[in-house]
Design a protein around this nucleic acid. Structure first.
Lengths: 142, 142
DNA sequence: TATTGTTATACTCTATAACTATA
DNA sequence: TATAGTTATAGAGTATAACAATA
């Protein structure tokens, strides 16, 4: 059990609060949160079997089937047969899908910049210095 | 894959990933994300008119009516008439609601802290150093 | 008239169970 | 038999529009 004034525990609480802050300040989107993180994931890791994508996103396989169907209907993703196992559908981003999440990322960066500008230079520097740590944190279990 | 040249763009991407990472590593809950942040908000700011709560959470007034009805059915919140304006319903936490949000918050913080402990001392130090900045960021617009 | 909140209705996203096809 | 994915069905949570009560 951790002590109540453990800085790590305080950090965890702050990150928890940060999550809900980010959620409230995200630009409204016709795509669901899962849809957006799925597109972002496909951009990072390339073509991925549907079931694996479902596990990574923490939703059921039928839910991912439905999501991929919607994304495909929007022209954002496509299916590719796996040459080694004909049961497998590999999901990949189309050019339109890649363009959309690039646009969304830069838009989010602009919004973030507005808020960052109100922070002190020391605060800004601290955040940039913490980037590798945040990166390692999210790759921890992946 | 996006080029990580712009630190601001990288920060946006990392925060994006952090959001979905925290979401995936949260303990499963019968309550929706909005339900949880609403309880948390009521715990922080006390009794709040329903419409104001809807605006703060970024959902419509009818959606908040439905959510509050569900929370009330679970015994987690209650309605209180506003003495000055009889149209207004002020929503407040019950003792059960307060207990639930406290338990969940500390559990979530513990889980996150476990992952933070696996990071290198340098990473941990960087995150702790960024704590005030994160705190300021989330209080920025509040 | 304007505001606070509810009711009516419809759509999206999710889950579990049953199914098809490949392995 | 086991695995990858789809289809069937149901429930939660959301929005917009129309309404009731109060200001």
């Amino acid at each position: 059990m951790t002590a109540p004034d453990d800085p790590l525990l305080e950090l965890a609480t702050t990150l928890d609060r940060l999550t809900s802050w980010i959620r409230r300040h995200s630009a409204p989107s016709p795509l669901s949160m899962t849809a957006r993180t799925t597109l972002s994931r496909l951009d990072e890791q390339g073509p991925t079997p549907l079931g694996e994508l479902a596990t990574q996103e923490g939703i059921s396989q039928p839910a991912m089937t439905g999501l991929v169907n919607r994304l495909e209907g929007l022209g954002l993703t496509a299916r590719e047969p796996d040459p080694d196992d004909r049961r497998v559908s590999r999901i990949l981003l189309t050019d339109a899908g890649r363009a959309l999440i690039a646009e969304r990322r830069s838009q989010r960066a602009r919004t973030l910049a507005e808020h960052l500008q109100r922070l002190s230079p020391a605060d800004q520097q601290a955040l940039v210095a913490a980037l590798p740590a945040l990166h390692h944190l999210t790759q921890d279990v992946s």
